[in-house]
């Protein structure tokens, strides 16, 4: 059985050199942008800034509290 050091050397020797993948860049970027646009079209609520949700939640809680106090 091989020694650990031999396995480490085997892995280091087996490293695949960096491939020139620049030609794929354009296609991948187009894919990323299209996916993002499709996502935005499908979910317009995502355009609302996060603080809006926080504010809406606080207002809802306050309304509920006032309602409970009023009923009492």
């Amino acid at each position: 059985m091989k020694k650990i050091r031999e396995i480490e050397n085997f892995l280091q020797d087996g490293k695949l050199p960096d491939q020139d993948v620049t030609p794929f860049r354009k296609g991948t970027w187009r894919h990323v942008i299209n996916a993002q646009r499709a996502r935005r079209r499908a979910r317009p609520l995502l355009k609302v800034p996060p603080w809006t949700w926080a504010l809406a939640s606080i207002i809802l809680v306050l309304l509920f509290v006032f309602f409970v106090l009023y009923v009492k």
Binding site: Q19, V21, R25
Partner: peptide, 18 residues
């Protein structure tokens, strides 16, 4: 985001390829 993409695309691609 394109700046980040251009900077890291090749590195990430090669990592996934390996």
């Amino acid at each position: 985001f394109e700046n980040i993409f251009i900077k890291y695309h090749d590195r990430i691609f090669n990592y996934i390829l390996r």
